[in-house]
């Protein structure tokens, strides 16, 4: 939530505590939960899109060119993309899960 909402008094609460702005949960970044980061190797990618379909966190968006783009602000590091990558069948997954410590 924005700092504005944190200072809301009871008079600012919408009737019935309805949330009127769809999808504003995206203001909350879940990337900090991650202990492993998926690192993408475009050379392997056949643009299958499985990573996009299976990502629980909608943290992967597909570029116009058809490649996955990981939004690290949201990626929780579950590793599904690396596991489910079509190319992983051949041991050539597009994603490698790398310890987050290595990026510090």
């Amino acid at each position: 939530m924005t700092s504005k909402e944190k200072t809301w008094t009871w008079r600012d609460i919408p009737v019935g505590a309805v949330v009127e702005e769809p999808g504003n949960a995206s203001e909350y970044l879940t990337g900090g939960w991650r202990s492993e980061r998926p690192v993408f190797t475009p050379d392997h990618c056949v643009q299958c899109g499985l990573c996009y379909v299976y990502c629980p966190d909608a943290a992967i968006v597909m570029t116009r060119e058809g490649y996955p783009d990981i939004r690290l602000d949201y990626c929780k590091g579950c590793g599904i993309c690396a596991r489910e990558c079509f190319m992983s069948t051949f041991g050539l997954s597009c994603f490698e899960m790398v310890d987050e410590e290595e990026f510090r």
Partner: peptide, 8 residues
């Protein structure tokens, strides 16, 4: 939307 609080 992304930003939901589901487990990994």
């Amino acid at each position: 939307s992304a930003g939901h609080r589901a487990c990994q």
